[in-house]
Every structure is written in C-alpha cells, then in structure tokens.
C-alpha cells in the first residue's frame, strides 16, 4: 500500500479533474472536425423559373425584393429553421458611396428576406483585406445588417478548416471558413468592380472572402484558382449588386469618380452565369474574363448568355 493518505476532499478533487480532462479531450477533437455540407445545386436551366433575373431601378433594397419575387421568392431557397449565410463584399475600409463594398441596403434586404422565409439565423461576415473593424463599420454593413437582426461577426482565425479539392489544376487543399460551409444556405452578394489582376471582381472573386491562408498566392493563377474554388463552394443563390459599379481603380476605388450608377441587381443560382451577365455591364464579353472561360470549360456554369433565359424587370 502506498504511504500517502488521501482525504476525501482531495480524492474527489483528483477524480473530478481526471474525469473532466478525459471528457474534454474528445470534445476538443470534436470541435475541430470539419463538417462539410456541400449540397448539390441544380445547374443550367430549370423549367419553371428563369436562369437569371435582372432588376433595374432606383432603390437598391426594392431591386433585391422584386428580383427575388420574380425568381420564386426567398422561400424557394430558405426553409424554415435554416441557418443562412449572407456573404457580401466588405473587404475594404470604404464608405458606401465609394462602392468598394456591397451596398448595405442590399445586404439588409437579403437578411430581412431570409428571416421572412423562416431562417433560424442569418450570419454576415467577410474575410476583409483592410482592418476588419474599419471595413465592417465604415461600409455601413455591420449597422444595417445588425438592424435587420443578422449576426455580424469578425472572422475568427480558429474557424478555418482545410478542404481537399479533387479534379482541380491549382488547388489541392486550402483553408475555408467553416461557417460558410456549415450553413444550410449560402447567399453570395458581391458588388461589381474592376480589378487589376482578375480584370473584374464579382461573384467568383467575392468568394475569396471565405478562404483563409495566404490569399496572395492565388494571384499568379487567379483565374484557375477561382474556377477550382467553385468546384467545392456553390452558393445556393448569387445576388450581384450592380447598383453602383466601380469602373476604374478597382477593387479599392476611393473616389465617387470611380463609380458609375447602373441601378441593377442580377440574381441567379448559376454563379458563373451571373458573372457573365455582370461582365457585359463593363463592356466585356464573358469569354474575355479568364476565370469565367475556365469555369465554363470545367462545366461549372454557363457563360453563353444567348443560351440563358434572362428575365428583365423594371422596379
């Protein structure tokens, strides 16, 4: 027998801490498991709804509401009790009128629509380039989205999870934000801008806001990388904010002189098709944009606008 004499209190303490330790370790590993829910998303045309809806008008929030109405309503995508992620572009420390970030009213309208459709929780976030606090606040998105009841949080570096890619040329494995993968519905809400490296930044480029790691390494092969990314990340809905578009000095801009008023909102389930329409706003053919051409070659979406059923509405 051992010489040590345990008091009861000491015994309980030691057993308690041992049990706690044993119990908490598996929990830690649980918390780290990536929980991939890549839902299949219908590609191409469906019978009852148009492929794209393009709304034009003067009120950004109304544009989204009317466009979505014509597209079958938010209920088509969001079921009761769903967790919805609205992913706008909040990358830059810029004011709304400078149009470097998604229009805050568009984001707010989407959050409201999601809740109206019965969503349990709507999250809004972006992996910013500039200081996250400055971006969230000065873009006006934090305030507007929170007023609609969304949960607006800064990116937590602990929540990136490594995702393996297959059948891709550039990406093999890359950290992606877990909350964007774990949700029931992902709504991508980019703003249309020019971009020095990728020519234009819209839906596909906006998805760089849910990836982590050294994002700068994508730049040498940005077009291939973006096409690779959407083999795994398929938002159920893409809403392209073209209320104001940035026609030069993108993606940062910084002056209202860089911005052109278009007053459009393009929505669709095929993100490549949405971008293809967006390219025409800048006078480009979709084939001229590298990542769209590659995505089309990889059969990830349609870039031939004449093949698509596009419904245009005035608001």
């Amino acid at each position: 027998m051992s010489d040590e004499k345990y008091t009861r209190r000491e015994f309980v303490k030691r057993m308690g801490s041992m049990i706690l330790g044993l119990v908490s370790f598996p929990l830690i590993s649980l918390a780290d498991q990536p929980n991939l829910k890549t839902k299949k998303q219908p590609l191409g045309s469906s019978t009852s709804f148009p492929d794209l809806v393009v709304a034009q008008g003067r009120d950004p929030a109304e544009l989204v509401r009317k466009a979505l109405q014509a597209y079958g309503g938010m209920k088509r995508f969001v079921k009761k009790g769903d967790v919805v992620v609205v992913k706008p572009n909040i990358a830059w420390d810029r004011l709304p009128a400078q149009a470097a970030n998604t229009n805050p009213d568009v984001v707010k309208a989407l959050v409201e629509l999601a809740y109206e459709a019965g969503a349990k929780k709507v999250k809004v976030f972006d992996n910013t380039v500039n200081n996250p606090q400055s971006c969230y606040r000065r873009s006006g998105i934090m305030e507007k989205a929170q007023s609609a009841g969304a949960e607006v949080k800064f990116i937590n570096p602990a929540l990136f999870t490594k995702v393996k890619f297959s059948g891709t040329k550039f990406l093999t494995e890359w950290p992606i934000y877990k909350e964007a993968l774990d949700c029931d519905v992902l709504i991508n809400v980019p703003v249309a801008k020019t971009h020095g490296i990728s020519t234009l930044t819209m839906a596909l480029k906006n998805l760089m806001g849910i990836i982590g790691g050294a994002r700068g390494r994508w730049h040498p092969q940005i077009h291939q990388a973006l096409a690779d990314l959407i083999t795994k990340v398929r938002p159920q809905l893409t809403v392209l904010d073209a209320y104001r578009i940035m026609i030069k000095n993108g993606p940062t801009g910084g002056s209202v002189k860089d911005v052109k008023f278009v007053g459009k909102c393009i929505i669709g389930t095929d993100q490549v098709a949405v971008d293809s329409y967006g390219a025409t706003l800048f006078g480009y053919k979709p084939q001229e944009i590298g990542y769209l051409r590659i995505a089309n070659e990889m059969k990830l979406g349609e870039i031939n606008l004449s093949k698509l059923h596009i419904k245009e509405i005035k608001v």
Binding site: G196, I197, G216, H219, P220, T252, G253, G254, K257
Partner: peptide
Amino acid sequence: CLSWLNIECNVCEEACPQSPK
C-alpha cells in the same frame, strides 16, 4: 518582387488605396 520575377502577383496594386491608384 514576384511580378518582376515573372510570377504575376500584383497584390500591392490591388491593395493601393489611392484613387487614382
């Protein structure tokens, strides 16, 4: 600089906040 080593990078251009850049 990567771009000057023939690896197109240009992150600096993307991030430059001046308008015009």
